[in-house]
Amino acid sequence: MPLVTTAELFTRARNRGQGLPAFNVLHLETIEAIAAGAERTGTGVVLQISQNCVRYHGGLAPLAAASRAVAESSSAPLSLHLDHAEDLDLVREALDLGFSSVMYDGATLDYPENVARTVTAVSAAHAVGAIVEAELGEIGGKDGAHAPGVRTDPAEAARFAADTGVDALAVAVGSSHAMLERTAELDTDLIAAIAAAVPVPLVLHGSSGVPDASIQAGIRSGMVKVNISTQLNKMFTAGVRERLGAQPDLVDSRKYLGAGRDRLADEVARLVDVLTMVTTA
Rank of each mutant, 00 (worst) to 15 (best):
K234W: 02
V268F: 07
T183K: 14
D83A: 12
S100H: 07
R241V: 00
S67A: 15
S176P: 04
D143Q: 14
V210N: 02
T30C: 14
V278H: 04
F99R: 01
P248N: 10
Q247H: 15
V122F: 09
V150F: 14
G239S: 03
Q216H: 02
I139E: 01
A64V: 11
D189R: 10
M223W: 06
G245E: 06
E93F: 01
A170T: 10
L232K: 02
N24G: 04
I219S: 05
P112S: 11
A76Q: 12
V54N: 02
P211Y: 03
G58K: 04
G149N: 09
R270D: 01
A161H: 03
L3Q: 08
L20H: 01
G58N: 12
H81F: 10
T164N: 10
A172Y: 00
S176D: 08
E156S: 13
A69C: 06
R55P: 00
H27F: 12
E8K: 08
D189H: 07
G149W: 01
G149V: 11
D89K: 09
T152E: 01
D212C: 02
A64R: 00
A36P: 06
G260E: 03
M179Y: 02
S123R: 12
G129I: 09
R270P: 04
A65D: 15
M103Q: 08
M277N: 12
S75N: 09
A192N: 07
Y56L: 06
R159T: 13
G129A: 14
S208M: 11
V45G: 00
G106N: 08
N15K: 14
I215M: 11
R117N: 15
E267T: 09
T43L: 00
D167H: 14
N15E: 15
V274R: 00
A13M: 10
N233M: 08
A85H: 06
L28W: 10
P148I: 09
L47K: 02
L204T: 07
L136M: 04
Y104V: 12
V240T: 10
L63D: 06
P21S: 05
G258H: 07
A269D: 11
A157T: 11
S79R: 06
G209M: 07
G144Y: 09
G239D: 01
P154A: 12
D167L: 08
A193Q: 10
V198F: 13
T230V: 12
L63P: 10
A178R: 11
S253G: 01
M1G: 12
D163W: 04
V102F: 02
V119D: 02
V132W: 00
N227P: 15
A155Q: 14
R12W: 04
Q48L: 13
C53W: 02
R12I: 11
S207M: 04
V54K: 08
V54Q: 14
E242H: 06
T183L: 13
L136N: 00
D212Q: 06
G19D: 03
V132A: 14
L9E: 05
S101C: 01
L136H: 04
